[in-house]
């Protein structure tokens, strides 16, 4: 699998990086077990070994892994006494839709973090909460609005006055 090869190579590169960086730790002898670079190098080597083993077995991409588990479940499904109940209805959305949603949501969180230094925290939390709720669902906007309002105000006061957390 193409995806598999990329990931295995990535893992190997990471392990090698760890080992090399360990050698570079200032003025330390990697082979002296009492030095700060011994353990990191050791860990790097272990990582390298596991990365190679992973490469051998091959990485599964998400979709193929799901198919495999589905087959797995179909075979074993009758053995388990209490199958996990389906907690959620299946939502109608495409893979692409999911990816867009994920990226936007993550972007919102990052934005939240960046703006923490510039905007009053209570206002910012309200915006973030309301914004992300809207992002995720267009329905019941009023409810989202109210909940965001209550949560941001309530927790702002709790954190500042009860916990004395100083916000930027």
């Amino acid at each position: 699998m193409v995806a598999g090869k990329y990931i295995s190579t990535l893992l190997i590169v990471i392990s090698l990086a760890v080992v090399v960086l360990s050698f570079n730790i200032e003025e330390q002898d990697v082979f002296d077990p009492s030095s700060p670079s011994f353990f990191p190098a050791l860990v790097g080597v272990v990582m390298l070994i596991s990365a190679l083993m992973i490469a051998r077995r091959g990485i599964q991409s998400p979709s193929s892994a799901q198919e495999e588990t589905k087959q797995h479940v179909a075979v074993e499904g009758n053995d388990e006494e209490e199958p996990e109940k389906e907690m959620y209805e299946k939502e109608n959305i495409t893979q692409k839709g999911i990816n867009i949603r994920l990226i936007l949501f993550t972007a919102l969180v990052v934005l939240f973090a960046i703006l923490m230094n510039y905007i009053n925290f209570m206002v910012l939390s309200f915006l973030f909460l309301f914004g992300s709720m809207l992002l995720l669902s267009r329905e019941k906007m009023l409810r989202s609005f109210i909940v965001s309002l209550i949560v941001s105000v309530a927790f702002y006061y709790t954190f500042v006055h009860v916990f004395h957390i100083v916000f930027p």
């Binding site: 919102l108 703006l115 915006l127 914004g131």
Partner: peptide, 17 residues
Amino acid sequence: IAFSMLMLAGCGSQPAS
């Protein structure tokens, strides 16, 4: 919303909130 957040930031940083 994203735009308004940026606007607020642009309006200048606020001192210790």
